[in-house]
Design a protein around this nucleic acid. Structure first.
Lengths: 331, 331
DNA sequence: TTGTAGGCGTTATCAC
DNA sequence: GTGATAACGCCTACAA
């Protein structure tokens, strides 16, 4: 026994005016008598009118809604980015439809489809697909979109991402400056631009210090805390010789630290650990890491999209955010 | 130069049929010739038709969208709940509009308003308001809703929450069994049902063990990691005598642990720590804690709402989820 | 200053 | 089996 929503028609009848007088009153349009307006608003209030945005979206051909498609919602990195998006969205009277695609290709495609059906005005996406062509194919709608936290070479898309080459470089250089030479790099399998850049930064720092790059201490694992834990346990048991670990992200670093602690290895004395992202718990664990301005990433991403949605820019925007080393107690 | 979306009208014209033959084809309705259907679908595909859900929502009077209103999106507790909601939502072909109300009364009100304007079919909310009357007032719309992770005495609403009395009891009893008697309780200021239940559980365990309840070692702080850190530092410096800490949640426990470590206090030998929620990082930190089935909380919440939205139930549903003690190395 | 009419894209009803 | 038509609720020309 759900009550029907009140419509402007109901208000019009109650106020004895036409429906568009009501519309004018509700939308603060000019060309309306102050008293009429007052009366209409009062009646609307009394009847408990709630505007139907669905209907106005249809009429206006815009939904004031953006779609947010994330690879992995459980990673605090994305949550902090989301926070930035959410803030900007709210400030500009937009809403946000969220979909987690769990690093799954099919879900990514489906998510984009759903966003299109919902007629979102724009999309913010951290894509799973790495190949330009494939991504282009699924994104072949006329919805403006901005890629978050990733970069596609040669692809003419709007993007905002971090300077990961610099990040990898800073992290590695920091370990070298602390006297470390056998630096394990715990990278992720998924060879996208991000992991490649961090790897390049790592290599750059080693070269600069004239340390030979040893591919045997570079590991590609799943982006998962337990996999990191297991991998470090494994190399420890295999007797691999190393003096520090640079991890693709903080989550992997947590796993690594857990393994080291279990084996009674002293951090940073015996093994140093550097993470990446600086998610909120890293300050508690006192993890040295590379900080990406996550809130800003989300916040700015919305604004790039906003300008596109409102045709304020034509050319592509590519923003590379600066990163910084946060020194804590694991190094 | 945004291309217009293709409509069923366009398809009708191209296929030389009427618009509702198109509609029948697209929606798998009976009463359509197999060949006609095939032709129509082919043309729809060719033209790149994307259904306008906005329009069908208007027509059908349902949006297949739910609103999710969270107190605080940065708390991993909610992220895990969200994950459960997201999963159930996807499985049932619903979408989800998310709003973070940042523990703010005004935002809570506004969020509900926006959800109503968007004509969501239902709302999942972790409310900020604690008084039944006030909450009722803002929720006085005819949208079905389910309260997540909280309970209002005497209020006839659908709810799903954890057995926090048991949780508080288990945590405290565990510390007592480990020989601790001076158990600091780091609770949150915000006196809602959840914090009160955990406090009751704490008191129940103490009474059972015939330990005098000492209000001087029960603290109400802001639900914030740094506040927990500062509070523990403060009581340590004041020379307060205690042998363990039970924290309202894991985040507070992280702050407490950081303070203890900084002061060179051994955990668990000198001071034991128990948290609450069992968020993902707690297993890394090896924090003893009370586990709430978070994913399940979200997943089931959707299903309660689903049944309400589809009028499958009339009476109120109240689900109390069981909790369990997870023993790790801080006790 | 106010009202009438038509349309946004879809679906349901009713003829044919 | 298929098509014309109206309706969902709102907004915008245009007319009065």
């Amino acid at each position: 026994m759900k009550k029907r929503y009140i419509t402007i028609k109901d208000i019009a009848k109650a106020a004895n005016v036409s429906i568009n007088t009501v519309s004018r009153a509700l939308n603060n349009k000019p060309d309306i008598n102050a008293k009429t307006k007052e009366k209409v608003l009062k009646i609307a209030e009394e009847l408990g009118y709630v505007k139907n945005i669905t209907a106005s979206s249809l009429r206006n051909r815009k939904s004031k809604t953006i779609g947010v498609i994330f690879k992995d919602i459980t990673n605090p990195f994305f949550v902090e980015v989301l926070k930035g998006i959410e803030k900007a969205t709210k400030e500009n009277d937009y809403s946000l439809i969220l979909m987690d695609i769990e690093k799954d290709y099919e879900l990514e495609k489906k998510a984009i489809q759903i966003m299109a059906e919902k007629r979102v005005d724009g999309i913010l996406i951290s894509p799973v697909r790495k190949e330009k062509k494939k991504f282009n194919k699924i994104m072949n709608l006329n919805i403006p979109y901005v890629i978050i936290g990733d970069h596609f070479e040669e692809m003419n898309a709007d993007e905002i991402y971090a300077n990961d080459l610099k990040g990898g470089y800073l992290a590695t250089k920091h370990l070298i400056e602390r006297g470390r030479k056998k630096i394990v790099f715990l990278n992720v399998k998924n060879h996208n631009f991000v992991s490649q850049s961090r790897l390049q930064g790592y290599k750059k720092a080693l070269k600069e210090a004239k340390i030979r790059i040893n591919n045997k201490i570079i590991f590609d694992i799943k982006e998962d805390v337990n996999d990191a834990y297991k991998k470090i346990l494994e190399i420890l048991e295999n007797g691999l010789s190393f003096d520090s670990i640079f991890c693709f992200n903080d989550i992997l670093a947590y796993g690594a630290i857990k393994a080291l602690r279990e084996k009674g290895i002293e951090i940073p004395k015996e093994i140093m650990v550097v993470g990446y992202d600086d998610i909120i718990y890293s300050s508690i664990i006192d993890l040295t890491t590379i900080r990406i301005p996550k809130f800003e990433l989300g916040y700015k991403a919305f604004h790039i999209l906003f300008d596109k949605m409102n045709h304020k820019v034509n050319k592509r925007t590519k923003i590379v955010l600066d990163v910084e080393l946060i020194e804590r107690k694991t190094t």
